[in-house]
Simulated assay, not measured.
Amino acid sequence: MNSRLDFCKTSPEAIKAMIALEQPIGNSSLEKPLIELVRLRASQINGCAYCMDLHSADARKAGEDERRLATVGAWRETPFFSQRERAALAWTEAVTLVSSTHVPDDVWESVQPHFTPEEMTDLTLLVVAINGWNRFSIALRKMPA
């Protein structure tokens, strides 16, 4: 597969807008390991090789456990994730698959006890942002280095 174009170079303003979308996430109370797990899980669902490579490497650099990275796609079947992380992963899946899930009430109800309203907004923004990056990278064929 060949890269179609380097979107970072062809439209710096578009990339500035995407980076600005990320700013509140970095300033949020969401934990860095949780943020990377969410980014990785959404990227797995979307099949974004570039983002999967990037966020698994970022998670490793931040000290994430290799077993957790290897099993994030099967988080329901492992004991490696906290209740808060499980809630975030369920939310990530429902929001990423919004066209088929419509983010059901039972997912909302299971996530709410683990996050403040502000964190829920930040978590949703995180899922929206990584899905946007996935779409840029998949559509324009950004390749892992």
Score class of each variant (00 low, 15 high):
residue 75 W to G: 01
residue 7 F to P: 02
residue 56 S to L: 10
residue 19 I to Y: 12
residue 135 R to H: 11
residue 54 L to R: 01
residue 112 Q to F: 11
residue 144 P to Y: 05
residue 106 D to I: 15
residue 67 R to I: 10
residue 135 R to A: 06
residue 143 M to F: 09
residue 96 T to V: 09
residue 55 H to L: 03
residue 6 D to Y: 12
residue 115 F to C: 03
residue 65 D to L: 11
residue 38 V to Y: 00
residue 65 D to Y: 08
residue 41 R to N: 03
residue 124 T to I: 07
residue 47 G to D: 05
residue 31 E to N: 10
residue 34 L to Q: 03
residue 81 F to Y: 13
residue 48 C to P: 00
residue 70 A to W: 09
residue 81 F to T: 02
residue 36 E to S: 05
residue 27 N to T: 13
residue 137 S to Y: 05
residue 133 W to Q: 00
residue 62 A to K: 10
residue 101 T to N: 05
residue 55 H to D: 01
residue 140 L to H: 05
residue 34 L to S: 03
residue 17 A to V: 06
residue 119 E to W: 04
residue 87 A to V: 03
residue 44 Q to E: 08
residue 65 D to Q: 12
residue 56 S to G: 05
residue 84 R to V: 06
residue 137 S to K: 06
residue 104 P to Q: 08
residue 3 S to I: 15
residue 107 V to T: 10
residue 7 F to R: 08
residue 128 V to A: 13
residue 137 S to I: 06
residue 141 R to C: 10
residue 43 S to N: 01
residue 23 Q to P: 04
residue 76 R to E: 08
residue 65 D to I: 13
residue 79 P to Q: 10
residue 112 Q to N: 13
residue 118 E to A: 15
residue 39 R to G: 01
residue 8 C to F: 13
residue 20 A to R: 12
residue 60 R to S: 11
residue 104 P to F: 03
residue 19 I to Q: 13
residue 73 G to S: 11
residue 76 R to I: 08
residue 137 S to E: 09
residue 84 R to D: 01
residue 28 S to V: 10
residue 84 R to Q: 11
residue 71 T to M: 14
residue 74 A to G: 10
residue 21 L to A: 11
